[in-house]
């Protein structure tokens, strides 16, 4: 006979978290092995004990009479903004989607220039206020979603599309951010060394690590969003990326 079932397998069994294939293997072993059957029923008894005890304990506690509807009535009834909230709740998906779409359109305007800048001589230039505006629009859509706390099921619906738009938009803006960082780096080298040739050469070489960072963030971000799309944490990741991009863009705009 093959080796006995592990505790993990038995625990997975009582919690019904095994795959069909795992279950089949287990069932076959269990029919042949009284020892593992006994262990399984021990686990089942323990599970029952926890469940029953929790139910009984919970039934034994009651909130005080102070916890009543009357106590929250002022908060619930006195909500002057209720209509407004209701309306904003309904309008939010459309607002967020249009903000993200407009942001993407604006970001795309800057795309050709960003690509040219990436391969041009790294001369310090300002950022485009259009890209910064795009970032602001993305952040509106992102922060709103974070606040709304979307559920997992939404990954296929409008919110999946919204996440895709924001992902694409941040990738496009990211190109300009990389161009800015590259120019800033070579400018810094020029300031420190005073050698223009060295600064240009370094700016060109810097393109490789910066490009790798961009690819990593874009691909890694896509994978992350795909797996955790719709969860709060995915909007948090967007928020961080947008914040970093916006920070660099504004810094370049002011410098």
């Amino acid at each position: 006979m093959n080796s006995h079932l592990t505790d993990e397998e038995l625990i997975g069994n009582i919690h019904r978290t095994l795959t069909d294939a795992q279950r089949e293997v287990m069932d076959r072993h269990l029919t042949a092995c009284p020892q593992c059957r006994a262990r399984l029923s021990d686990h089942e008894a323990m599970q029952q004990r926890i469940r029953h005890s929790l139910l009984a304990d919970m039934r034994g506690v009651q909130p005080s009479p102070a916890m009543s509807f009357a106590a929250i009535t002022p908060r619930v009834k006195g909500d002057k903004y209720r209509t407004f909230r209701q309306l904003s709740g309904q309008l939010f998906p459309i607002t967020a989607a249009s903000a993200a779409l407009i942001g993407l359109a604006i970001a795309l305007v800057d795309l050709p220039e960003s690509v040219i800048r990436l391969f041009a001589k790294p001369e310090p230039a300002s950022a485009s206020s259009l890209s910064a505006l795009a970032c602001v629009l993305f952040s509106v859509a992102t922060v709103g979603n974070y606040h709304e706390r979307r559920f997992n099921q939404l990954r296929s619906s409008l919110y999946g599309l919204l996440a895709f738009i924001i992902w694409l938009g941040t990738a496009v803006v990211g190109l300009q951010v990389i161009a800015i960082v590259r120019e800033a780096l070579s400018w810094l080298v020029f300031l420190v060394s005073g050698k223009l040739q060295l600064a240009f050469a370094l700016g060109n070489w810097a393109l490789i690590p910066l490009g790798l960072v961009w690819i990593a963030v874009v691909i890694g971000g896509a994978e992350y969003q795909y797996r955790r799309g719709g969860q709060r944490i995915s909007w948090k990741l967007f928020a961080w990326i947008i914040a970093v991009e916006l920070f660099i863009l504004i810094f370049a705009l002011l410098a």
Binding site: E8, H15, T17, M46, R149, N152
Partner: peptide, 26 residues
Amino acid sequence: ADILDCPVPTAQSRVRLAYQRLRATL
């Protein structure tokens, strides 16, 4: 997973881990 805002496998492994801890105590 919806309530805890985590993936389904995480919810599953938390339940299993919690059960193991409880069992060790009880």
